[in-house]
Computed example of a mutant assay.
Amino acid sequence: MFGGGGGGLDSRKMQQMMKQMGIDIDELDAEEVIIKTSEETLVFDNPDVQRMDAQGQETYNVVGSPRTEEGDVSTTEDDESDDGIPQEDIETVADRAGVSEAEAEEALEATGGMPLDAIERLSE
């Protein structure tokens, strides 16, 4: 198939071929990767992660054994405001900006749910 006889390509030849095709692979020193779906959250602790850049399109390869967290996936009304802003964000903004939770929630709504932007907005 590829290369001469002897059972395939060695790592160096494979890297040469990928480079010629415009594909670049980097190893990332990832500590944790989290994948959230509507049904579960998969957490990979200390995974092997490679980033492949092929003609401007980045693809990530994650290798490891995930643990599943089901409790963090669905949120209840107590965990989010009516606009989908996490209660934790509201409390953080209120505490950091020294304002009421209602003011913090309003600032978060105005900034698209971005806590840092909301704090800056309230500090002006």
Rank of each mutant, 00 (worst) to 15 (best):
M1L: 04
F2M: 07
G3P: 02
G3L: 05
G4S: 10
G4F: 10
G5P: 05
R12A: 14
M14S: 10
M17R: 10
M18W: 09
M21F: 13
I23N: 06
D24P: 03
D26R: 11
D26H: 12
E27Q: 12
E27C: 02
L28I: 10
A30G: 05
E31H: 09
E32S: 07
V33W: 05
I34C: 04
S38P: 11
E40C: 03
E40N: 08
T41H: 06
T41G: 06
L42G: 03
N46V: 02
P47Q: 07
D48R: 10
D48S: 09
V49K: 10
Q50H: 10
R51A: 12
R51M: 11
R51W: 04
M52N: 04
M52E: 12
M52W: 05
Q55M: 15
G56S: 09
Q57A: 13
Y60V: 03
V63H: 11
V63T: 15
V63N: 14
G64N: 03
G64F: 02
G64W: 02
S65A: 12
S65I: 09
P66M: 00
P66H: 01
E69Y: 13
E69D: 15
D72R: 13
S74A: 11
S74T: 11
D79H: 02
E80H: 08
D82S: 09
D82T: 04
D82Y: 03
D83M: 07
D83H: 09
Q87E: 15
D89L: 03
I90A: 06
E91G: 01
T92G: 10
V93M: 01
A94E: 02
R96M: 10
G98T: 00
V99C: 04
E101S: 06
A102E: 12
A104P: 01
A104M: 00
E106M: 01
E106H: 04
A107N: 02
E109H: 13
T111R: 12
G112S: 08
M114D: 15
P115T: 08
P115S: 09
D117P: 08
A118M: 05
I119T: 09
I119R: 07
E120D: 15
L122H: 09
L122C: 08
S123I: 01
S123N: 12
